[in-house]
């Protein structure tokens, strides 16, 4: 099952513990995570469900390509990292 980890910088706004969440695409994985931690959704995705402009997601160290539909595939044992981009600060 993929492991989802969040940047430490988000933790002062909303608690985002590391979790194992099932899913075949990054959308599936995030939806599963936000079912457990609903308040985190608005910190990562905008109101249209897209990845926020200044956030970044890595799957096993590779940045995702589809920031709008989040269709990138997630291997079963992948590590997913959510971090803020250096832009936008």
């Amino acid at each position: 099952m993929p492991t989802v980890r969040f940047t430490q910088n988000i933790q002062r706004h909303v608690a985002c513990p590391t979790r194992e969440v099932a899913g075949e695409t990054i959308r599936d994985v995030l939806d599963g995570y936000f079912r457990l931690h609903a308040q985190a959704r608005g910190y990562v995705l905008d109101d249209q469900g897209r990845l926020r402009q200044h956030m970044a997601i890595f799957i096993d160290g590779s940045q995702i390509r589809d920031r709008d539909d989040l269709s990138d595939r997630v291997p079963p044992d992948a590590v997913v990292d959510l971090v803020q981009a250096l832009s936008g600060g």
């Binding site: 988000i10 706004h13 905008d46 200044h54 956030m55 981009a85």
Partner: peptide, 8 residues
């Protein structure tokens, strides 16, 4: 307005 995390 958190630059990375949006408007709250």
């Amino acid at each position: 307005n958190h630059g990375h995390f949006g408007v709250k």
